[in-house]
């Protein structure tokens, strides 16, 4: 298989797509989000579980279920590992940095940001394929939406993410 494909499908991505971390919905969540990508029908339901015993809420864990391509599944799996135990503000910063990576057209971000993203930096190659960016972002969009619901105590919404259909 050619180099472009091994660049895109890094081993980290293939591994996470095969063994998805955080897969399986857990109850006791503070917020939930359901996102679909109407282009391909991929979907994810993601829950955030908060630890509110301290001065600022911590993201205790994420649980999720969904179906989709290896990029979307691996991205949600990597996300699960990255945000475990971080503050809500840090989770938001991670999501924003990942979005920046997806808009980078395949260029690496600063080494500090790269380090912050950890395994999620393996998705750099995805940014060169515009049709796949939304696959990688699906889980992150669900995370932000679920956190927003958790923080406003709003009931989880069944909503589309506003991506356009193809035809």
């Amino acid at each position: 298989m050619n180099d472009a494909m091994t660049q895109l499908y890094q081993q980290v991505i293939l591994d996470h797509a095969r063994e998805r971390h955080g897969y399986g919905l857990v109850t006791g969540h503070a917020g939930e989000s359901f996102q679909v990508n109407p282009t391909c029908g991929d979907e994810i339901r993601l829950r955030v579980h908060l630890d509110t015993t301290g001065p600022a809420p911590l993201l205790e864990r994420v649980s999720w279920e969904g179906m989709g391509c290896s990029i979307s599944q691996a991205s949600a799996s990597v996300l699960t590992d990255l945000v475990r135990g971080v503050s809500v503000a840090q989770a938001d910063e991670l999501a924003e940095t990942f979005r920046e990576l997806m808009n980078s057209r395949g260029r690496s971000l600063s080494s500090a940001k790269d380090e912050m993203l950890g395994d999620a930096a393996a998705f750099t190659g995805v940014a060169q394929y515009p049709a796949r960016i939304k696959c990688a972002l699906l889980g992150w969009m669900a995370l932000r939406d679920a956190l927003a619901h958790a923080l406003t105590q709003a009931p989880p919404a069944e909503e589309k993410n506003g991506m356009n259909n193809d035809d």
Partner: peptide, 12 residues
């Protein structure tokens, strides 16, 4: 293998 991934490999 998800169809998106199939298409990606063939596209390459």
């Amino acid at each position: 293998v998800h169809p998106h991934d199939v298409g990606q490999i063939l596209d390459a």
